[in-house]
Amino acid sequence: MIEMHSVVAGYGGGDVLQGLDLSVRPGTITCIVGPNGAGKSTVLRAISGQIHPREGEIRLAGSAIHGHSPAAVISAGIVQVPQHNGLFADLTVRDNMLLGGYLIRRDKARLRRRIAELEEVFPIVRERADEKAANLSGGQRRIVEFARALVLEPRMVLLDEPTLGLDPKASALVFDSTRMMRDLGTTVLMVEQNVRFGLRLASHGVVMERGRVLLADSSEALLARPDMAAMFFGSSAPPADPAEPEPGTGTGPGTDPQREDAHL
């Protein structure tokens, strides 16, 4: 679905992504994990056109999308759900849904049909339609954001830390809704700091560190690695061979794989 090749990108201050290679297969949920500052969210921003890579290329189903405006990326079929304030807080849920279809606003029939379909899948969109988005709880907002992202029937949805600040119950709702998105035929690329949650939800996992991909594998394989904890408990560890966790990072070798498995 998406291929990123030696991407170098960042904000004013410097390059966050330093030659990143990443690919996402269609129809999967892929989760990027990694310590803070590894550049996880930056990957999503680079894909969605909010920042433009300095070097490298990003292809969606073969055609290049790097350097495109956010609107062009959306037209190409990729919608991003940002980390914070994705919904327009002063607008009603219905207006937010309608704006999700901004690019097809002239095709009123299609827009109405899409919203009606999504209301079936996510009933809250209908129940709270006239309410201002600001009045929704954190979990409810996430669900509306998901529904809104699907109005355009995108090929791919980018989720930036969808459980950030949510309680366990709301996280569970996000978990279900994300699977639902995939079942509707959308490829999902997500960033999640809650590693087990993310990898449990996803079929594929990508571990990032310092702007590069350290590991990419099926999420079961990643979860089974005994050294996962070590990778997260020492963000200053150089990108060494991941099989050898940096000694002295507090935890690392002490993690018991048996216990991990018990939770899978």
Binding site: S171, F175, D176, N194, R196, F197, G198, A229, F233, T251
Partner: peptide, 27 residues
């Protein structure tokens, strides 16, 4: 702290979220 199980849970992802999710049924 570095040996504390709860702390590690907090960093790596709380399992209770997963439990709640699976209890939700759809997954």
């Amino acid at each position: 702290i570095s040996a504390d199980e709860q702390v590690r849970e907090a960093y790596l992802g709380a399992d209770f979220a997963l439990d709640a999710a699976t209890a939700g049924g759809t997954a």
